[in-house]
Amino acid sequence: MAHLTAEEVEHIALLGRLSLTEEEKARYAQQLSAVLDYAVELASIDVEGIPPTATVLAAHNIMRQDDLPSLSIERDDALKNAPRTDGISFEVQATFEDRDA
């Protein structure tokens, strides 16, 4: 039986970049445990020597010249749906603090 603790749920939510309410954390701890219990069935299946399937296609690298500039979109179009821009770029909060400031 998988039983996710409150700490585990908080850790996963941080990894998934999801701010959750206390009520959501409690609910997901219970529901995710139930789904993971269901997945326990897989542990009983013999997969010795079986390769994983990441794609059903016979995947291979496709190489081409970097010559499709027409597929790019214009800057104004790229910015059209952005929540905040200065007209030429997306505006976001700083990723790193400026330690010298």
């Binding site: 990894l15 998934g16 529901q31 897989l42 997969v47």
Partner: peptide, 29 residues
């Protein structure tokens, strides 16, 4: 949110092989 949580868990360190890779192997079967 439930599926992001579930997927993030299945891909996280310590659970990746037991859940995600095992599921991909059973997918092959």
């Amino acid at each position: 949110k439930r599926r992001i949580m579930l997927g993030t868990y299945a891909l996280s360190a310590g659970y990746y092989d037991a859940y995600y890779i095992r599921a991909q192997k059973v997918r092959t079967l």
